[in-house]
Design a protein around this nucleic acid. Sequence first.
RNA 1: GCGACUAUGGUAUAAUGGUUAUUACGCUGCUCUGUGGAAGCGGAAAUACGGGUUCAAUUCCCGUUAGUCGCCCCA
Length: 429
Amino acid sequence: MSEIKNKLSLEPYKGTRDFYPKEQFVQNYIFSVWKKVCESYGYLEYNASILEETELYKSKSGEEIVNEQTYSFTDRGGRNVTIRPEMTPTVARMVAQKRKELTFPLRWFSVPNLFRYERPQRGRLREHWQLNADMFGVDGMEADVEVISLAHSIMKGFGAKDSDFNIRISNRKLTTFLLKEFFRLDEDKTYKVFKLIDKMKKLPESEFKEALEKVVGEIFEELYKTLKSENLESLNQEVLNSEGGKQVKELFEKLNKLGINNLVFDFSIVRGFDYYTGTVFEVYDTSPENNRALFGGGRYDDLVGIFGVEKVPGIGFGMGDVTMRDFLETHALMPEYKPAVKLYICHLEGCLDAASSLGSYLRELGINVSVDLTNRKVSLQVKAADREKIPYVLVVGEEEVKTGKFKVKNLKDSSEIEVEKEKIVELIK
RNA sequence: GCGACUAUGGUAUAAUGGUUAUUACGCUGCUCUGUGGAAGCGGAAAUACGGGUUCAAUUCCCGUUAGUCGCCCCA
């Protein structure tokens, strides 16, 4: 073996995963919950190519992201092409293109695979799949309420309890008002504090305060106290009555009315992207061993406008399969593997043809059947079925061919029932 | 892009500067010519790759590759 050199690698490409049937089963499960819940809210599925012109990302994402963290290349026609690192610019482009003929409000979702060129680590790979759910064309808080409610329902759809996660909410308008109007910071300082707030949870308190003091001076204590507060009511009245403040209040009230109570107001939620304009939120895992943001989103009212057309307000979120898997594992919510095959047909010597035609017969009646094609002894054939977790097995031998009766064995409880060919279907269903 | 750690059959592991590299699961043959999960006895299967030190390297050192975890960044 070792004399064979320069063998092709068996590993999947760095940062990507192979989905063997058992993993694909989990993947399908996650996708199906996403799809089911989205559709229950009236969201329609769309998709697009993984390739986009690089320009699309340059106009809204930071330079570093485009230059260093995307898969980009020049095609044979000299176009700069990027493999999509996120879906939002694509949806915004699609909406902008057909804005005249689309019926608003638009409720759309997609489960794209996204690519980013960076060092893989826990919860972050080079390729991942992400649910993107967005609503376009509604200015009011009703849209924010619905989208967050959808996020909440998806978590419930996976079997999560309210205590397993919480939804941390903030509002960029509110934060901007607080910094600019209330604390009278200039444009530059406001921007710097925004970037700093994003790190509030990561830095030790003393370090954060120090950095804050450097930017804003002596008011840092008071500002820090405000930022740390998770109690909306404790905010200054002037701040609370600003446009952003009113929005947050309305959002909380309406969500509570819908029975969604695992909400936390949290200034430290700002999200990395500059395009968010109002509500921003992140869903957090509350369990100590996986305490981190699972996914998030927010309102981006100016994004469609970058295409040089009239503004269309939008709000949405993205939810990755990698973090979702981690969450399901942490909370023991992983589904039990069940193959699509329901029946495994074994056969004795000379009976393969009969087994095959029985298989065809059952398939026409809508049963997923797998026929053993080997000549190994029956015990090994049955064992193979058991290993694949196929629930039922039957053996075709001369006896069965003659009588037309089959012993169908349930591998879960080892029970065996002898029935005619015609009865097999109802037994298995 | 930077740093730390790791690398032994398919999987999970043990051990060692020196004869045949441990064990378990899985796979496979038989005990068992019509029914899996049990038992017994066999079998195939590994020191990531390249270089160095050494009489001798799987073991020590360096590099490469890959993985994991951080940093950066966050979709």
